[in-house]
């Protein structure tokens, strides 16, 4: 009961921010235009925020670790690499490059495939050192990033600029053309994951205990990994990579909810994440007049928090 109250409270806070974001500055003359801009934007932000939180919490549970998130492991750079790779292979005039929806679907498909391979590679066998995994992930992130920019350079520069503007998003240049596809994808994964939530609760006890308690470990992990890959594709396609958001909000959610049950943890972290982004974007746009992109602030706070977590982990 207590947990439910907290979640309702978070939902109310989010509603307030959404109303503020949409409502402020509307008048009888501009409402039509303003709404047509703001509503897709707010849907995009909430979609991104909740996807990041959702994927992070699922990922932390299946890897049994509270420092790892998909973006710390470089998965969002992998998505951007996939996008670039498609343009690179099919050329920047092909339908897969110029149609953002097709590009998204194809890139997300590749992404599912490759993240499963990557996961197999990294987590196979006995317990791997967690710091090794993080370092590996960060470098693999850099690797894919530079490889993507490298490919973007090699393709005819003028032609590529056109594609780049349409495909590679940021908060102020949100990729709204794939909004509906992303929304459908998100809803489907949510419904799909729902029946796995009790399994995830058991999985947080660790691999051996979960198998002992009768969970089909490999099956659950593989399915959850597909979900994570789709979610990462959605959030990265909409606004681009934000490394530390997932880490921050999931840890706040765990602190707030104090329960192992994913049926509370997942909605709470999705709400907190959406509140952070909507509130942050509201402040960035209206109070600071676009002077600071919020992803910078998130990476600053997140980076310091991450160092703190690392040092604390080490001392234990």
């Amino acid at each position: 009961m207590e947990q439910k109250k907290k979640i309702y409270l978070l939902a109310i806070v989010l509603m307030v921010f959404v109303i503020l974001f949409i409502g402020i500055g509307l008048n009888s003359k501009n409402w039509e235009y303003a709404l047509s801009r703001r509503i897709p934007k707010i849907i995009g932000i909430i979609l991104t925020g909740s996807s990041i939180a959702f994927s992070s919490i699922v990922f932390q549970t299946i890897t049994n670790n509270r420092i790892l998130t998909p973006s710390v492991l470089g998965l969002d750079s992998l998505y951007i690499f996939m996008q670039t790779f498609i343009v690179f292979v099919f050329g920047s005039n092909a339908i897969f490059s110029t149609n953002p929806r097709l590009n998204f679907i194809l890139a997300a498909g590749f992404m599912v495939l490759f993240s499963i391979i990557l996961f197999r590679l990294l987590f196979k066998g006995e317990n791997k050192n967690i710091f090794f995994l993080i370092l590996f992930g960060m470098i693999i992130g850099t690797f894919f990033q530079s490889l993507s920019s490298f490919m973007q350079f090699i393709i005819d520069p003028n032609e590529f600029l056109v594609v780049q503007n349409r495909m590679f998003a940021s908060f102020n240049n949100m990729n709204t053309s794939i909004l509906y596809i992303a929304l459908i994808g998100k809803l489907l994964t949510l419904i799909y994951t729902y029946r796995f939530l009790p399994n995830l609760d058991v999985l947080s006890l660790g691999r051996d205990s979960a198998i002992n308690l009768g969970v089909d470990y490999d099956y659950v992990v593989r399915n959850m990994l597909i979900v994570v890959a789709i979610l990462v594709s959605i959030s990265t396609a909409l606004v681009g990579p934000i490394t530390f958001l997932g880490l921050l909000v999931v840890n706040i959610a765990r602190g707030l909810i104090k329960s192992y049950k994913h049926k509370y943890l997942v909605p709470a972290s999705m709400l907190i994440s959406s509140i952070t982004l909507v509130g942050g974007q509201f402040i960035a746009e209206r109070v600071m007049n676009f002077k600071t992109p919020i992803s910078v602030v998130i990476n600053f706070v997140g980076g310091i928090y991450f160092i703190y977590l690392l040092l604390r982990e080490v001392e234990m």
Partner: peptide, 27 residues
């Protein structure tokens, strides 16, 4: 400050520190 000097934690802390400084620069 790091007592337990794992071979990978040192560059990890350095990269993170670089990220934090980098975000101040971007800001």
């Amino acid at each position: 400050r790091v007592k337990f000097k794992n071979a990978v934690i040192i560059p990890l802390v350095g990269i993170m520190l670089g990220n934090v400084i980098d975000s101040i620069t971007t800001f």
